[in-house]
Design a protein around this nucleic acid. Structure first.
Lengths: 192, 192
DNA sequence: CCTTACATGTAAACCGTTACATGATTGG
DNA sequence: CCAATCATGTAACGGTTTACATGTAAGG
């Protein structure tokens, strides 16, 4: 089975009741380094889960904004999620425009390259800070149900650390090569 | 602009002429850890690029199999690719069912978890071997046009190494937590 | 005053994956 | 004999992203 947004919504609801808006925040805070979902996929997913009887929905009337719809997992929903977990393939897919841009480093000016590297590092450091925050919030918890989230946070952290380290190490060599290449393509007749 | 399969085909063709089949192999060998594409997206992409005049196509008649169609970049195609590179956002997206499964470790039996970890490590080691092969093939090349590919290969290598190391370190603790959790959920009345 | 947070939803566009269709040759 | 490699393509399906639609309240 496939672990898509619909299925992941069930997963989030194993942690307790939540609205679509809450679920979006949960995705952002805890899944952001391995699973992304927007409102455009979460809201329709919840509506369908409701139709299928895998979640229930209570409407909480509010003033000045749309009624808050609080979803809760049904036993059937819980079972469906556990079954999906068991039968899923442990895939891990990356799609990186960042690495594509670096692969073709020789087709870009060194300044662009430097900016690309710096922007990426900045983003990774923000991300790293968020993960360290998360890890600091629950340091001594030996609740077995927290082992998974801690493992995933740690995984994200070591990946980001390794990536930052690698970029810091390679940055100068890469930019130097780009500068060399620019020189040789700008005035090839001077060589030889 | 977006670096999709169509655009990446232009990128591959900056390295020289190739058929759709060749391009697929190129994706597998050199992009596989940050960009995946199948025949179902490559063939239609090449057809459209041809219609747009960004590539040309020579048909090489063959016996016993479909004519080999060899594509080559036009100046317009090269320009389009360079422009796409410049204007692209350096995104880096991960979608990992593997990490989702580990996040919800407490909802699965320890044996399943162990199998998931082992399968992933095995795949990463295969991948790692492929990258080390690639790096060994062109060790002393100081051609600036090879700096990008080397950077990307190295990036993939350090990511895989860090992931394998982390999993090896955490494996036992994670499985122990899963076993504890199973015990406590199987016989909660024994506790307290 | 402007931006962010709160709060939900629809519809279309876009892209990619998967399955289907065809078929010879080579190596284990 | 079976699997893999070579070689191209279409069509349907599935899933996500993006844009649109609406509106209040709090904080900088």
């Amino acid at each position: 089975m496939k672990l898509d947004v619909k299925t992941l919504c069930l997963g989030v609801l194993t942690q307790g009741e939540a609205s679509g808006y809450d679920i979006k925040k949960y995705f952002e805070c805890t899944f952001s380094h391995f699973f992304v979902a927007g409102f455009g996929s979460i809201y329709p997913a919840l509506a369908e889960l409701s139709r299928e009887g895998l979640v229930t929905c209570r409407e909480m009337p509010q003033e000045g904004r749309p009624d808050r719809k609080v979803y809760a997992l049904t036993p059937a929903g819980r079972e469906r999620f556990v079954q999906a977990l068991r039968s899923a393939e442990p895939t891990h897919k990356v799609r990186s425009q960042f690495l594509v841009m670096l692969y073709f480093a020789h087709l870009q000016p060194p300044e662009t390259l430097a900016s690309v590297l710096d922007r990426r590092v900045t983003e990774m450091q923000r991300h790293l800070a968020a993960i360290e925050d998360f890890e600091a919030r629950g340091p001594a918890g030996h609740d077995p149900a927290e082992a998974g989230p801690r493992f995933c946070a740690g995984y994200g952290r070591v990946m980001l650390e390794a990536a930052c380290r690698y970029i810091a190490e390679q940055r100068e060599a890469l930019l130097a090569a780009a500068r060399d290449h620019k020189d040789s393509s700008a005035s090839p007749s001077h060589e030889g």
